[in-house]
């Protein structure tokens, strides 16, 4: 009777071993999160560079000062590749939303969304500081 129980214990050991191995597989599946982070950083880099270029001659702050959201949206549409969806929100230094219109070119159905925060200042006689939040995604 004792010898027969020893065999059953080994079967239970086998199942425990399998449980441990498959749980390690389940943990390793989370590695894919790292890949998404890498892809997002590429989009964020593109977004930051675009905002930097639009701001280099004061155009970006001028659009905001003039509340010319349509032109700002057209400019972003033109300088970003056709396959990139964007959504931009402008805040003042009190973190109150400034843009009254939506500055976006589509919906964000992609899971891979990049975020860029950018600060810019108007170059006119009245000093205004704006904080821009730009979300980018690969359009699907």
């Amino acid at each position: 009777m004792k010898n027969q129980n020893r065999g059953q214990i080994r079967i239970i050991e086998a199942f425990l071993a399998v449980l441990i191995i498959f749980s390690s597989l389940a943990i390793s599946a989370n590695l894919s999160v790292t890949q998404n982070t890498k892809a997002s950083s590429g989009l964020a880099s593109i977004g930051l560079q675009v905002l930097l270029k639009l701001d280099s001659d004061g155009s970006l702050a001028r659009y905001i000062d003039n509340e010319d959201w349509h032109t700002l949206r057209d400019s972003l549409n033109l300088v970003l590749s056709a396959g990139i969806a964007f959504d931009l929100t402008v805040y003042n230094d009190q973190m109150q939303q400034v843009n009254t219109d939506v500055v976006s070119n589509g919906d964000f159905s992609s899971q891979d969304i990049a975020f860029v925060e950018y600060a810019c200042a108007s170059q006119g006689s009245d000093f205004h500081c704006y904080i821009i939040h730009l979300y980018l995604a690969v359009a699907t």
């Binding site: 027969q4 020893r6 065999g7 059953q8 079967i11 050991e13 086998a14 399998v18 191995i21």
Partner: peptide, 20 residues
């Protein structure tokens, strides 16, 4: 019977470890 159980358990372990 114990030999059959042990052989079955070892085979199962080896098979599942390899497939894992």
């Amino acid at each position: 019977a114990i030999s059959v159980d042990t052989f079955f358990a070892c085979s199962l372990m080896v098979l599942l470890v390899l497939s894992a």
